[in-house]
Simulated assay, not measured.
Amino acid sequence: MPWFVKIEEGIVDKPTFDQYVPAHKAYVQDLIAKGHQAKTGYWAERGGGMLLFEANSKQEAQAIVQGDPLVANHCVKYQLHEWCIIAE
């Protein structure tokens, strides 16, 4: 299954963003349970982060990203990329 990465930048104030973090974490746990091997985190300098996950296609990856509470609630702008692994 191909890997995808959503690189995001926060676009709302921290209190607004933080109210959706528990839902985002639960969403990622659901992705893990469904076999997408998701990992999520934020940059140490704050203001953005990344979601790494497997999906069957770019279309499925886009649908996964659209279901993220941080995206659905307009807390981040993002770029979605397929990640082509060359070494493990």
Rank of each mutant, 00 (worst) to 15 (best):
T40I: 13
E60K: 03
V76P: 00
K14Y: 12
D13A: 15
D18V: 10
V65A: 15
N73K: 03
W83S: 05
A61I: 02
W83F: 15
G10Q: 09
K14A: 15
Q66M: 06
V5Y: 02
V12D: 04
Q37C: 09
F53S: 05
K25S: 11
P15G: 11
H24C: 11
K58F: 11
P22M: 10
L70P: 10
I7L: 12
K25M: 14
K77M: 00
N56W: 03
Q19T: 12
P69G: 05
T40D: 07
C75R: 01
V28K: 04
Q37T: 10
Q59L: 14
Y20T: 05
V65W: 04
P22C: 13
V21T: 14
T40L: 08
A72I: 02
Q37P: 07
P22D: 09
H74G: 00
S57A: 08
K6I: 02
Y42I: 14
S57Q: 09
Q19E: 14
S57M: 06
K34R: 13
D68K: 00
Y42T: 15
A23K: 10
Y78H: 02
P15W: 10
A63W: 06
V5S: 05
F53L: 08
E8S: 11
A33K: 07
Y78I: 00
K25H: 14
Y78R: 00
T40Q: 07
E60C: 03
L70D: 05
D18F: 13
A55L: 01
A44N: 10
D18L: 15
V65C: 13
K58A: 12
K34M: 08
D13H: 10
D30S: 15
V28R: 06
A38V: 12
A55S: 05
A63H: 09
R46V: 11
G41A: 08
G67A: 05
E54P: 02
C75Q: 01
A23Y: 06
Q29F: 11
I64P: 01
Q66K: 15
M50H: 09
K25N: 13
A61C: 06
S57H: 11
E60R: 01
G41L: 12
K25L: 15
H74S: 00
Q59S: 14
Q79M: 01
Q59Y: 09
V5A: 06
W83N: 04
V21E: 11
Y20R: 02
P2A: 07
G49A: 12
I7S: 04
Q19H: 09
E9I: 04
Q37G: 09
G35I: 06
